[in-house]
Structures are given as structure tokens and as C-alpha cells.
């Protein structure tokens, strides 16, 4: 086959974007190449001797590749790399920095369920689950991955516009002595003390 010349500009900003350990490789197209660029992806477990090609991301024209399955062992660390092709020319392999799923993922807010009596609110929080290959696969809560998880809960009195914050370690909170007939807005955030990870506040 024709000799490929690696003179094509390189893919840029090759990096992992991870939410709840759903780990997707992203990159930007090489500068000034326009349409028609195709890409190949490979990945490696840090400390293990070989690069592994990702068949589902061979000769693709999109600029992302889901490597969640290949990087699901969160006690390992990974590299991934992308190469671009266009009309017989190719780029160099462009690598990510070392990716640590445990510290480099983002965490979704917890699920908040609220019940109330006329003078109190009961709040139950549920941490999101780690990404899994299929619905049938056993669920792993991020609580198991980060044992030190804490919750920051905000309770807004819609009448007085005053907001209270609570920091709790278990996942339930009862707020007593409330004003009857008053609307309260509850929102919660996950806080992992170390490695420092904070989710956004729930809607």
C-alpha cells in the first residue's frame, strides 16, 4: 500500500471528559484541514506494555470516542492517543496526559427526594451510580468508590428568601420547626473531601 506521509497537522487538545466515570476521549480537528479527516484511536493501561487499538473508533470522522468500557477499572490509570488521516497523509499520534478515573472524573449532583409534614421536611439523598456497560450489569454507587462522601444541603425559604446550609455525612436530613403554608426549595451537592471533588447543586 502507498507509503503514508505523517505531514498532516496533529489533532489538538486530546483529552478525556469524564462524568460519573463515563470516560469519553475528545479532541479537536487538526488546524486548517477542513472536511474529510478520519481518525484512529488507541489506548494503554499505564504500566502495562502495549497500546490497544479501539476498533469502533477506526477511520471515524467524529472527534470523540467512548472509552468507558476500556477504562472502567478505576484503580488503574490510562493514556489514549489519536492519529489523523487525509488523502494519503497522516499526523503523528497525539496523546492525552495520564488519566486517573478516580480523581479526573466529575460527579453529578445527588438525587433529592423530599417529603413533608405541616411543620417539617424529610430529605433523602441518593448518590449517582458509576457508569456501567449495560443496565443488566450490577450497579456500583459512587458512595462505594468514595467512602468519605459528604452532602451539602441548601434549604431556601421562598417567603423570606433566607437560605440555610447543612453539611451531613449520612444521606438523610430532617428539618423541623418550619413555617406552615410556606414553600421551601431544597437543593443538594456531593462533596468528596479527598481527592477534592464537588458536584454541582441539584436543580
Amino acid at each position: 500500500s502507498g507509503e503514508l506521509y505523517c505531514s498532516l497537522p496533529n489533532p489538538r487538545n486530546v483529552h478525556f471528559e469524564s462524568i460519573n466515570m463515563k470516560n469519553v476521549l475528545h479532541w479537536s480537528a487538526p488546524e486548517g484541514t477542513g472536511d474529510g479527516v478520519l481518525y484512529k484511536v488507541k489506548y494503554a493501561v499505564y504500566g502495562v506494555g502495549k497500546w490497544i487499538r479501539k476498533p469502533e473508533c477506526r477511520n471515524i470522522n467524529r472527534t470523540w470516542c467512548d472509552l468507558s468500557s476500556e477504562t472502567s477499572e478505576h484503580e488503574e490509570q490510562y493514556y489514549a492517543s489519536v492519529k489523523a488521516f487525509l488523502k494519503g497523509a497522516c499526523s503523528d499520534w497525539m496523546e492525552t496526559t495520564r488519566f486517573n478515573p478516580l480523581t479526573d472524573t466529575k460527579i453529578d449532583p445527588p438525587m433529592v427526594s423530599v417529603s413533608s409534614t405541616d411543620r417539617s421536611i424529610s430529605i433523602v439523598l441518593t448518590a449517582p451510580e458509576k457508569w456501567k456497560r449495560s443496565p443488566e450489569e450490577e450497579s456500583v454507587s459512587l458512595l462505594q468508590v468514595y467512602p468519605g462522601i459528604q452532602y451539602n444541603v441548601s434549604v431556601l425559604n421562598k417567603k423570606t428568601k433566607k437560605r440555610w446550609f447543612f453539611s451531613i455525612s449520612n444521606n438523610t436530613l430532617v428539618v423541623p420547626w418550619l413555617e406552615p403554608g410556606t414553600a421551601y426549595c431544597v437543593s443538594a451537592q456531593i462533596h468528596v473531601p479527598t481527592p477534592v471533588l464537588d458536584s454541582g447543586f441539584s436543580k
Binding site: V48, T97, T194, P195, V196
Partner: peptide, 29 residues
């Protein structure tokens, strides 16, 4: 632990970029 983590996070990319060997690990393999 928090301070050690913060210190390491601040220099992690710099230090790891000085290590070109992907195929060897000291601690994990």
C-alpha cells in the same frame, strides 16, 4: 492528606510529563 493531595495536584501534569515511559510502573504493576 488534603494538603498532600493539593500539593501533588498542583504539579501532577508537570511531573508526569517528565516521565515518557508508559509501559512501566513503580507502584502498580
Amino acid at each position: 492528606m488534603r494538603e498532600i493531595r493539593a500539593g501533588f495536584t498542583a504539579i501532577k501534569t508537570n511531573i508526569q510529563s517528565r516521565d515518557p515511559i508508559r509501559t512501566l510502573s513503580i507502584l502498580s504493576h
